[in-house]
Structure formats: C-alpha cells, structure tokens
C-alpha cells in the first residue's frame, strides 16, 4: 500500500513532464530518444514499473533485459496472463481501486478501448513517426508491428506450400497444418479477417476440410512445429524466427496474397529496437499507459 501511495506522489510531480514528452516534436525526440533528463531522473527515484502483458513471458523477458541495459535502475515487475484473463484482472482491480499496473501491453485494441478511461494521455518521444490511422486514442499506443508468415518444418516437408490458398489443398490435410484459433487475441483476429476479406468468404470452410490441429495460441503451435507434431502453420514471424535463428529445422515465408500485419510506424526512417518508454517509469498508478502489440 505504501508503495502505491509513494508512486502516486511521484506521479503528481511527473505530470508536467508527461505533457512535455507529448509535446516534443520529432526532431527533439531524436535528440532525446528516451525523453527529457528530468523524466529519467524521476524514473530513477521511483525505481520500479509494474508491467502487465498478454505477450509471452520469454519474449517479454528479452524486452525487459534490453530495457534494463539502458535503465538498470528501473526494476520491471511483470504479470503475464492470457488476453481474456488479463482483461478480467485489470477490470476487477480497477473497480476495486487496486490496479497495480503502470504499463499494460495487450493485443486486443477493442478491449483496451473500453478501458481507456483508466489511462492517462501519453505520447512517446517519437510520437510524430506513428501512422495516424493506428492511433485510436491518445492513451493507447501501438507497440510493435507483427506480421503473419507461413512456416514449415523443413526436415519433414518435402513439397512445401507456397501461398495461403495452398493451405486448403488436400495434400496438406489430416492434421499436418496447425492453426491458432481466432479468439486467441487481437493479432489472430487480424489474420482471420484478412482470410475472409482477401482470400474469400469460403476460405475458412475450405481450410476446415484439411482438418487442421487447433492451438490456443501461437507459442505452443510454433513449438509443435519444431517438434514435428504439425508440419506447417501460419504463425507470427517473431515467434518462429527466434527458433529458426537458434537452429530449429524451420523455413518461413511471406505468402504472395499478402501479409496480415498490425501496422505501427511506416514513417520510421530506420529500424529501431522495440523499447519501453522511460517516461513511463516516472509516472505511477494513475498515469498508466496501455500498449497495443
């Protein structure tokens, strides 16, 4: 309890800094890529962020490790839960006045929009680089661009598919294909709608004839692919790429019909690592930010 009070006090001090961060033009942001020095100093004093995420623990540990290289003085305390459970936790905690999170990362924009009153306006230093159409609220910020690819186990598949439509062919039937179910989260809904809009209204029915194996999310599906439980699967590139990098027998390609993505920053001049804004650390309980991945 004491901790959250302390944070609330720190927040009062940090309010103007947050506004300043929002007002920074793109050029200033490049000069101070992590926010103004007083904000970083405030973060140092507070020393902790409680971070809720629906992403996978291991992936987030990597992000936290990278963040802590730059900001070793800010401890990240992470709570990870599947999307639906996380939303329930956030809603219940908030209603009881005990929302512990400082930053929330969730993949479902629709669900987060319902909760936007919980968060404070915020803008990262590079706010001007974001595509305006992805900014649904000044309280919610896209965090990462995720794109769908098709991956296959190269040790087992001799005649790999080459397109989304190939996945409806009988030769890939009988449980060879793994599919992540639609309600898994926001990114999966993106792929599902892409299939209906671009590949045709009957794509789902055609796909069902191959009797795909269903997975609750991308991570267990990617593991099953590596093990050879399934041999082909549409998967988010970032999930399978790390496994391929580490030597797993995988091949990945982007199908010619198109790639369902959750776009973020097409105006970015050079690729930048994903990072948690340091300004968030100096805020606190009532100055929470939500991030959409």
């Amino acid at each position: 309890m004491k901790l959250s009070l302390t944070r609330r006090r720190a927040l009062q001090a940090g309010g103007s800094a947050a506004f300043a961060a929002f007002a920074l033009p793109a050029r200033a942001a490049r000069e101070n890529p992590f926010g103004p020095p007083d904000l970083i100093e405030a973060a140092k004093k507070e020393g902790k962020i409680v971070y809720y995420t629906a992403n996978f623990t291991e992936v987030e540990q990597e992000v936290i490790k990278a963040f802590n290289k730059r900001f070793p003085f800010v401890r990240i305390e992470m709570v990870r839960a599947p999307g639906g459970q996380l939303i329930t936790r956030i809603k219940t905690e908030a209603a009881a006045g005990k929302l512990a999170a400082d930053v929330i990362d969730h993949s479902d924009r629709g669900l987060m929009l319902e909760l936007q009153d919980l968060f404070q306006d915020y803008a990262p230093p590079n706010a001007a680089d974001y595509l305006p159409s992805v900014l649904v609220s000044p309280k919610l910020w896209p965090r990462v661009t995720l794109g769908w690819s098709i991956a296959y186990n190269s040790a087992l598949v001799k005649n790999p598919p080459k397109s989304w439509l190939d996945l409806t062919k009988p030769e890939y039937g009988n449980g060879q294909i793994g599919q992540v179910i639609a309600p898994s989260g926001g990114t999966t809904w993106t792929r599902i709608l892409f299939e209906r809009k671009i590949l045709g209204e009957d794509y789902w029915a055609k796909q069902a004839t191959t009797k795909p194996r269903l997975y609750p999310s991308g991570a267990p599906a990617s593991d099953a692919l590596v093990r050879g439980e399934i041999t082909i699967a549409p998967l988010l590139y970032n999930i399978v790429w790390t496994k391929k990098r580490d030597g797993a027998p995988l091949e990945i390609f982007f199908p010619p019909e198109g790639v369902p993505v959750t776009p973020m920053r097409p105006r970015s001049r050079r690729p930048r690592p994903i990072r948690m804004p340091p300004s968030s650390s100096s805020t606190g309980a009532s100055r929470r930010k939500a991030r959409l991945s």
Binding site: F56, T57, M78, V79, T88, A100, G218, A219, D223, I239
Partner: peptide, 26 residues
C-alpha cells in the same frame, strides 16, 4: 491464477506460463 501478482508469482503459475509460452525445453 487470478490472485498472484508480480511479487507473489508461484511456481505452478510460472510453469503454466512456460508451457503456454511454447518452449517445451524450459
């Protein structure tokens, strides 16, 4: 599942996290 927080994470929940995270080795 619904009662733990970042500071009170217990082994059973973390195990489920790892399982759901799709890394069989860990």
């Amino acid at each position: 599942l619904f009662l733990y927080t970042s500071e009170t994470m217990v082994m059973a929940v973390l195990l489920l996290d790892y399982y759901e995270g799709g890394n069989l080795g860990i």
